[in-house]
Amino acid sequence: MKNVLLLVHDDDGQEARLQAALDLTRALDGHLSCVDVSLYPAFAGDYYYGGGGAAGMLLADERQRESKNKTQVSARLANEGLAWDWTDVTGNFFEAVVDAARLADVVVVNRELERYPYPDMHGVASRILTHVRVPVLAVSSEQRGLKLNRALVAFDGQASSAATMRACVPILRLAEAVEILMVRDGAEQVEPSEAAAYLSRHGIHAEVKIVDDGLQPADRYIMEEIDNFRADYIVMGAYSHGRLMETFGGVTKRMLRNAHIPLLLGH
């Protein structure tokens, strides 16, 4: 895992995304690829009122802001001591990131913006998750920096959960402590003990915790275990059909809304 893809845009979540991506790239001794998106006015919701002329003016303003943003962020990257490249795109976040992710190992976005509804980062993160085949690191807009010492693996025994854990092995290797959490429902395809054995062959020695309680939503147990384990981040499959993630993505959506630590998600 060497290629980190970062969504760049002058919005309330950019600083959190940037700091997380820098910390992750440095920890992996990797390469940071930045895709800077100038949004089409049609994707600006209430900010777009008029026809072609108004749209052209709004797009020109957007490109001017992103040009200034590029100058500032590029100057910062030049002093970070890591390898990076830059691509400018005009369009929308979803298509730009999915296109750029073809040769990425991990994608960095916001799970949502805390103070502003626009851009809709929750929707963007959800759509990206269902279309890329690499882990997505989703961070709060309030996040500052990325700690990788204590990893909580929310494991439901389904294919997406196992695949996400395997893909995140290079990151999990950096952890001082790893815990595998399973909320059992009887539909598991892979046991947590098997997952722990797999990680042990990569030099990762994980503790296993199993919860047998089908009455409460699984994300309640995950949120509780974040505090109990003092987790720095979570690794979990997204939009799978096991109990831990819930049919139709209920747990995934709520974790994207509510998690106060970074999520490493895979689908």
Rank of each mutant, 00 (worst) to 15 (best):
P119V: 12
S38I: 05
A138R: 05
N69M: 06
V37C: 01
A44S: 11
L39Y: 08
G56S: 13
A96D: 02
N69P: 00
A54F: 10
Q64M: 09
L59Q: 07
W84N: 01
A100P: 04
H131A: 11
S67R: 14
P41T: 08
A125G: 07
E112F: 04
G145P: 03
D120G: 09
G91L: 11
I128Q: 08
E114F: 11
S67V: 11
D120T: 08
L82D: 00
T25W: 09
Y118Q: 05
L103Y: 06
G50F: 07
A101R: 02
N79M: 13
S140P: 00
L148E: 05
I128M: 09
D120S: 10
G50V: 05
A138K: 05
E80G: 10
S33H: 13
A78I: 02
V139S: 02
Y116F: 09
R65H: 12
A138G: 03
R111N: 11
A100T: 07
D61V: 14
A100K: 06
W86P: 01
M57P: 00
V106I: 13
L137H: 02
V97C: 05
R63M: 14
D99G: 14
S33G: 04
V35M: 04
A44T: 07
Q64F: 08
K68F: 13
F94N: 09
